[in-house]
Simulated scan of single mutants.
Amino acid sequence: MSFSSDVKGELARLEIKKKEDMLAEISGFLRVSGSIRLNGSGKMSIVASTENPAIARHFKKLIRDYFGSSADLEIGESEAPGSGKHYSSGYRYSLKIGHEGKSDRILRETGILMIKEGDDYLSDGIYQPIISKKSAKKAYLRGLFLGCGTISDPKKSYHLEFVIKRDGLAQDLKKLIDSFVEMRANISKRKNQNIVYIKKADYISDMLGIMGADFAVMNFENIRLERKIKGEAMRLSNCDNANVDRLITAAERQLKDIELIDKYMGVDNLPLRLNEIANARLKNPSASLTEIGNSLAEPVGKSAVTKRFAKLKEIAEKLKESI
């Protein structure tokens, strides 16, 4: 099971008690997963499909609890490429609601079928009266995610998206997400689809919490923490390696300066402090500046050691010029 399917499984097991939340969640799901079929005599039926059996059961129950309508459940082979990857069955589950199952009422109450100047028309976007309350906003997002949302494995990347066909719905969804405190979504195009997406880890964690996936939030945050610890350990390791490389390079330069001075001038002819620091480096080729300073008869700090090596370098440079 993928992380995305785990999240959907958790959301599909939630018990929705408020009527307005039931309607909002049903509306969000039907908006992206439902289609309308004309059966003659002006009668319509609704077909809503999903690859996830838990989601199909969840909405069959919600529709029954809210509308008192029993949706027929049909199972067929999935049409989606690689559908068996996340669900072992590889089947497609379709909820079908006919005229006798109150399809007209469902379409109107969910804001999908509207009337203007006496004519019916299909709306494009979120029916705002459905999301007038904060809990209903959360429920609508949950319905949309169960219908068209995915989230990447946080062990690999941070990405949550909704795949939306209609431009109006994509814009409304972005506004809905942005209405929550410190949340922001973006929209991009992928072929003929709108992708409403979130890539910031904090926002994704908040979105999971908003939709009610509390267990997924804990799992997500644990993975984030593990990644952060591993990243910090890697950074420190790289930093340590870089420091060691710099230390070795600096020590090699100092040894070359001292060897040059000894060859053409003699280390013993250096002033006492420079003689002492030169001999300390010769005895401890890989020691740090701090360790060199502490090894002297009268220990000195890193700054003083640096100045003395700088003086040795200056002497070595003058010797090179005179050779």
Rank of each mutant, 00 (worst) to 15 (best):
D124W: 08
A54L: 07
F59P: 00
Q254Y: 15
L144H: 05
L73P: 10
A233C: 01
P154F: 09
I323H: 02
I126R: 04
K116L: 07
M183W: 07
S83V: 02
D167S: 13
I112D: 04
Q171M: 12
D72K: 13
E15T: 14
K256Y: 08
L260W: 13
R142M: 08
E109V: 01
V7E: 11
H58G: 04
A310Y: 06
A24Q: 02
S286R: 13
K263A: 09
R37P: 02
E74T: 14
E51C: 07
A242G: 11
E77N: 14
N186D: 14
G118V: 07
T249N: 10
K199E: 15
L225E: 15
E20P: 04
I277C: 01
L30D: 01
I315C: 03
D240L: 08
M265C: 07
S27W: 01
L312M: 10
A136Y: 15
Y121P: 05
I151M: 08
M207Q: 10
K174F: 01
S237G: 14
R166P: 12
I292H: 03
S78L: 03
L312S: 07
A250Q: 15
L11N: 05
N186I: 05
R13W: 09
D206G: 13
Y127R: 03
L255V: 14
I195V: 03
G34K: 01
I223T: 10
I130P: 02
L38F: 14
I75E: 09
L282H: 06
A250C: 10
A185P: 01
S157L: 11
F3E: 00
R142I: 06
M211R: 12
I97N: 01
Q193S: 04
V163D: 09
S103K: 07
I63Q: 06
K102C: 01
R253C: 09
G209F: 10
E221S: 05
F162D: 00
Q171I: 14
S69K: 04
A56I: 02
R37A: 05
I151L: 13
E232P: 05
R92S: 15
S286D: 13
A316C: 11
A287K: 11
N294Y: 11
V300H: 09
E117I: 05
P285D: 04
Y140K: 04
A48F: 01
I36R: 00
G68S: 08
T249M: 10
L11F: 05
E79D: 14
S78Q: 06
M207H: 14
R13V: 11
P285F: 06
G76Y: 11
